[in-house]
Amino acid sequence: MRLTVVGCAGSYPGPDSAASCYLVEAPYESRTYRLVVDLGNGALGELQKYVDLADVDAIAVSHLHPDHYMDICGMYVYRKYVPGGPLPRIPLWGPTGSADRFAEAYGLPIEPGMTEELAVETWVDRAPVTLGPFTVTPRLVDHPVQAYALRIEAEGKVLTYSGDTGPTAALVEVAEGADLFLCEASFTDAPDNPPNLHLTGTDAGEAATAAGVGRLLLTHVPTWTDHDVVASEAKAAFAGPSELVEAGGVYEV
């Protein structure tokens, strides 16, 4: 697998990055299969640096906060109105209510909403989904809305993406033995952090240690959070290799 960080800004687009969006690619039937994981605000423009939008094969949405899904609206417009279109439907997996939320975000009638352009399906906790070469297993985590971490497997390699979550044993479970653990770290250690919302660098490092992952990538750090402190906290809690991601970063899994 190859992971490209399209956008990694936490909670809203930053001056150097769009909000959450990751491109995961792997060989499939003599070509490259392209899975977009989250498509937050500001990400659709950046995504076009790495892939023609017509070549996106599937989309996975971790949860329904705008910094993880809002540019689905632009993808809908592209697939419906591109010259020579509309394009064939592609699978999109997301939490309960995704199809309705997408329709509401663009001011569409609930029926058909965007379902003629996007084949919207609903995650079921722990139920694997096959998308081209990928097996994607969602795991409910701890966030104010229904939110999933995603375990993405292909050819014996494992990439786990935390989505957004507070500390939870479910995150360790879904990251168990992952080669690459792409984990949010929105807070620094402080006594007044809101509960059940996000992780600190320490939390991310501790989850990586407990799961026995090969490498930890820290993401979703808001502009207002000290990035160096987050990175230091993670290194103190996880002995393996770790780093903060940046938009445009590419990692082989």
Rank of each mutant, 00 (worst) to 15 (best):
V5Q: 04
G7F: 00
G7E: 00
C8W: 04
C8I: 05
A9I: 08
G10Q: 05
Y12T: 04
G14T: 02
P15Y: 07
S17Q: 06
A18Q: 03
A18T: 04
A19G: 00
Y22W: 11
L23D: 09
L23R: 07
L23K: 07
V24K: 11
V24D: 05
Y28V: 00
R31C: 04
T32H: 05
Y33S: 02
R34H: 12
V36G: 06
V37C: 12
G40A: 05
L44E: 04
L44T: 02
L47I: 00
Q48R: 14
Q48S: 15
Q48E: 15
Y50A: 05
V51G: 09
A54G: 14
A54R: 10
D55F: 12
D55W: 12
D57E: 15
A58W: 15
A58H: 14
I59S: 04
A60C: 15
V61G: 09
H65L: 09
D67W: 13
D67C: 13
H68T: 07
Y69V: 13
M70W: 06
D71I: 04
I72L: 12
C73S: 10
P83E: 05
L92R: 01
L92M: 15
L92W: 12
P95I: 07
P95H: 15
T96D: 13
T96Y: 13
G97M: 07
S98R: 09
R101E: 09
R101V: 07
A103E: 06
Y106I: 14
Y106G: 13
L108E: 10
P109M: 09
I110N: 08
I110R: 13
E111F: 10
P112D: 01
G113R: 02
M114K: 00
E116Y: 01
W123F: 11
W123T: 00
V124A: 13
R126A: 08
A127F: 04
P128V: 02
P128K: 00
T130L: 03
L131H: 15
P133W: 01
F134A: 00
T135H: 05
T135K: 07
T137R: 14
P144K: 13
V145K: 13
Y148I: 06
A149Y: 03
L150Y: 04
E153S: 14
A154H: 12
E155F: 15
G156V: 07
V158H: 06
L159D: 11
L159H: 12
Y161Q: 07
S162F: 03
G163C: 02
V174S: 15
A175Y: 02
A178C: 10
A178M: 09
A178R: 08
D179A: 08
L180H: 01
F181D: 00
F181V: 03
E184W: 05
A185T: 08
S186K: 01
F187R: 10
A190E: 04
P191L: 02
D192M: 06
N193P: 01
P194N: 12
H198K: 13
L199V: 07
L199D: 01
E206Y: 03
G212Y: 04
G212K: 02
G212S: 09
R215F: 11
R215A: 13
L216Y: 14
L217T: 01
L217P: 00
L218Y: 09
P222F: 11
P222Q: 08
T223C: 07
W224F: 09
V230H: 10
A231S: 14
E233S: 11
A234W: 03
A236N: 08
F238D: 12
G240M: 01
V245I: 12
G248R: 09
E252H: 11
V253Q: 05
V253L: 15
